[in-house]
């Protein structure tokens, strides 16, 4: 699953997989515009529904936390 999530993130923004910090959303690496693209792609790929309540800086902190979010919604 991680590879699929990583591929989606890379397609939206190439900087995301290279980012080493812990604040993808907070540091603006994932912009509000990117969120729409990422959510749409994750929903299509994994058949999940991501709601506004899931878009938190904790859930969108790292690639791992995004994977954990997808897993929790499956």
């Amino acid at each position: 699953m991680r590879e699929k999530v990583l591929a989606i993130l890379k397609e939206v923004n190439e900087e995301i997989p290279e980012y080493e910090g812990e604040g993808l959303l907070e540091d603006g690496i994932i912009a509000s515009l990117d969120v729409i693209e990422i959510v749409s792609a994750l929903e299509d790929e994994f058949g999940i529904v991501i709601a506004a309540r899931n878009i938190t800086k904790e859930n969108f902190a790292t690639v791992d936390s995004i994977c954990a979010l997808v897993e929790s919604l499956q």
Binding site: S32, V35, I36, V39, I50, A51, A52, I55, T56
Partner: peptide, 10 residues
């Protein structure tokens, strides 16, 4: 961002 932007886009 959290209460207006994401409320709309999500």
């Amino acid at each position: 961002r959290d209460y207006v932007m994401f409320s709309f886009t999500m």
